[in-house]
Write a protein that binds this DNA or RNA. Structure first.
Lengths: 339, 339
DNA sequence: TTGTAGGCGTTATCAG
DNA sequence: CTGATAACGCCTACAA
């Protein structure tokens, strides 16, 4: 690998000054002839401008960072995909970090931003602690948070509307004849966990259904294994539907039910949240509340890009509205339940 | 956002020279007292070294790039996860790009590497064209290719052993009493498609099973929709097992079979490849050949890191061995088939 | 051990 | 329109 040609080489090769070469290549004022000569020289030498040197000079890296809790979770995958697309279309590179659901890691990333390797950050924390919000107020580069950040924190923010999403699911289940709707949630100290718990109680009440604490169970994580385990805590024969806080939990619950001979949706309806690709893939296909993870990623990226243009404008918060996607797992019973 | 402190500020604050400040912070020769003073000054001012300036000086960006065809495919997700972990542990940041299964995009990424924004690249192309291999010979930074690159191309390389993986699946199906094993593949002009097609024919023959061209069908893509569609091309009643070139295809095939009243695995066994998380999640759970996508990602990252240390050593190729993971979808029949 | 000075490759300011 | 020159922030000979 030979040493790459620099702008100085190009200038010499074209017989012009360094400054002229730079201008000719960057579209600044230069004569036709100059532009031609420099361009040709650049092509002949295979010159490509060095990103690092350019960044140092102009004070921008043309990189944006994205930090998600778990790179493997389908929700984050679709977020990432949207962020990647948006960011790249705007001419930025994407620097990815996986924080492993660990607040300490997230703080470390915030600190590392001080090195100036990225012009901005999109952060999607699983848990929002005081420590984290504190670290969010005076960051070296603009940040957009995906998740329910307290309103007082002045930071651009994109959020889902979990309570509304839960309500959509509850109303749907009620309208298809279900009355005792259980809820399998993940850890309450997480962003989605707390929002969905609040939403569940509110939605059950406003639907005029009985609120039975035994119908609310907690899984230890947002995984299908945890969902399958949590299903054992559901009170046998006392519910006819289960809402799950995400699709992975729902798949786990469906498996547990199937295993003990309960038929979905004939005996019990199951509804998930996030509407990941999984919902299409499992059997039966899963009714799920689309909370717009892809849209959230896109919005977050746009917010960040706009912020880079105007650093002074007031923080903007945008919420994306949920949409229920009905599939097989919540179909109406064919005839009155037999259990 | 106030302007960040530079090393010059720290030096002045500590009352020492710029050079001393740099040395004190970088662990070069300096007195105890000097180190203390500079460290304190740095902390007081909240100094963090600028990555860009440092990169320009030392000629390394501390960034590695990863380009995958589709950020959403579970295979790539686990690869990415492994790469991210390995790369970060070595102190590098990860720059991610999604190429969209497009050779032109891949070439564009190779070219853009000339800007020097990363110290190396891991590339996992879906198709390996002549144009691509040509572009691989004289790259500005080291590259590791994940996939079956021709042996003559001198580039570090990690590959799966698809033929062996296919053989494992065929042997397993044969040993559980299946005789007419169909094969649903993806596009033949892709890296996995071509390798698995070759593997299938070889494995069927060496298993002493009849090779019937009607049993080989092609899906238009490696997706579950394409798999479901392709299942319609399988010759009814002429096979008792289906091997699918990846898990997504397998899920699609299972759905198609279930839909027409065929029971898996009682009537027909289904086996997938890649052993993605999907295999655990679908119903019935899917027997799948683990081709080590995670391990490949890890190996590729390690290869790249080693290469950065020794740019002269001969290109290394490493292959990861497949492992069959048996689940429900290929269980032995309970009694002789009724069809 | 410490300080001075030069340069990494660009862009941008200023005269000509 | 063009050319010399000064930064950007850091590291590292080299000299003291």
């Amino acid at each position: 690998m030979p040493t790459r040609p620099t702008l100085a080489h190009v200038a010499r090769h074209a017989g012009v000054s360094l400054a002229s070469a730079s201008r000719a290549l960057n579209g600044a004022s230069a004569s036709e002839d100059m532009i031609d000569r420099v361009r040709n020289a650049a092509v002949e030498l295979g010159y490509v401008a060095d990103a690092t040197a350019r960044s140092l000079k102009v004070g921008r890296t043309e990189q944006l960072a994205l930090a998600v809790a778990d790179l493997g979770n389908p929700v984050y995958v679709s977020m990432m995909r949207a962020v990647e697309r948006t960011v790249r279309a705007a001419g930025y590179r994407l620097v990815l970090s996986s924080t492993g659901a660990d607040t300490a890691e997230e703080l470390a990333i915030l600190r590392s931003l001080g090195h100036g390797y990225a012009d901005g950050l999109i952060l999607s924390p699983l848990r929002i602690t005081d420590e984290l919000t504190a670290a969010l107020v005076n960051t070296p580069v603009p940040i957009v948070v995906i998740g329910n950040i307290p309103a007082k924190i002045p930071v651009d923010n994109v959020r889902a509307n979990s309570p509304r999403g839960v309500a959509l699911a509850i109303d749907h289940l009620k309208s298809t004849g279900r009355r005792r709707i259980a809820f399998v949630n993940g850890p309450l100290d997480t962003v989605p966990g707390s929002a969905r718990a609040r939403g569940y109680e509110a939605a059950i009440e406003s639907a005029g259904l009985p609120l039975d604490p035994r119908l609310q169970v907690l899984a230890t994580e947002f995984t299908h294994e945890a969902g399958e385990a949590a299903a054992a805590d559901l009170p046998h024969n006392r519910y006819d539907a289960v809402l799950c806080a995400n699709d992975l939990l729902a798949v786990g619950v469906m498996r547990a039910l199937t295993r003990i001979g309960v038929s979905v949706p004939q005996d019990i309806a199951v509804v998930g949240m996030d509407d990941t690709e999984l919902a299409e893939l499992c059997t039966p296909t899963l009714t799920s509340v689309n909370l717009g993870s892809e849209r959230r990623g896109q919005l977050a990226a746009q917010l960040l890009l706009e912020r880079l243009v105007d650093r002074e404008r007031a923080p903007r918060r945008s919420a994306v509205q949920p949409k229920l996607v009905v599939r097989e797992s919540s179909a109406k019973r064919q005839r009155p339940a037999r259990r």
